[in-house]
Amino acid sequence: MRVQFDDVTVSLGGRDVVQQASLTVEPGSVVGLVGPNGSGKSSLLRTLYRAVRPRQGTVRIDGQDVQHLTGRRAARAVAVMLQDPPTDFDLSVEETVLLGRVPHHAAFGRDTPEDLDVVADAMRRTGITDLADRMVATLSGGQRQRVMLARALAQQSPVLVLDEPSNHLDISHQHELMTTVRSLGRTVLAALHDLNLAAQYCDRVVVLDGGRIVAAGPPALVLTPDLIRTTFDVDVRVHGDADEPVFAFRRLVTGDDDGGDAVLPHDEPLPESSLPR
């Protein structure tokens, strides 16, 4: 399914956190949204799964405005891998993944054999089969993220949204997750913090800064040292080849004291929070 954001502006508490964002995601492609904290990645994605309504502009799936779809139809088209679910009333891992089948059913009833097959497949793909009978509250952060991915897979939607999917995962599972996601052939929109992950697994990256889309395109062309420096306030060296760049980051230092060739003068003082601990 093709996803189109057309001139989308999102306001939260009177502030425009996303401003006039336009973006088309081709069917079957994996698109990474990158940008510093507060750049509007999550807010833009939330308009797609209808957790917020844009103040202006439209979001379309295959030409249909998502705001005009019923909740269940929208959820059959777009699945979201959310961050930690609240566990005041705890469900088992399998029951949580079964929630992915909610948009496919109207009423009370048993889980059909098809539901259970889909759920078993989703758990197998995310490597949580042997956690099936555990309660979600007893899992580690990384295990929970894989449960949430399995739940999203069980929705069987052509579009998959991942909101910072890898922040609790160890390195092997980060790559495992991105490989799984790529292998599905679905249209994927992922907000990512890790630029290396984005460069390695995304067909396109979209860079947001201050609520605006500042660049979009293939990772190797978009993620230039200059753009990374100005957007993320961080110094970067690029290793690897041109098709698959590998980034090494360090704190941005004003002046030429580093002696490196990649340092540009920076006209703003570093914010306190970006200092290394």
Binding site: A75, L82, P86, L99, R101, V102, P103, H105
Partner: peptide, 22 residues
């Protein structure tokens, strides 16, 4: 009886419920 599955979805938070079409 009609909404039991939706109740399960609501248990996991509003945003989660909305993403499941509830």
């Amino acid at each position: 009886a009609l909404l039991a599955r939706s109740l399960n979805a609501l248990m996991t938070g509003d945003e989660s419920a909305v993403s499941l079409g509830v």
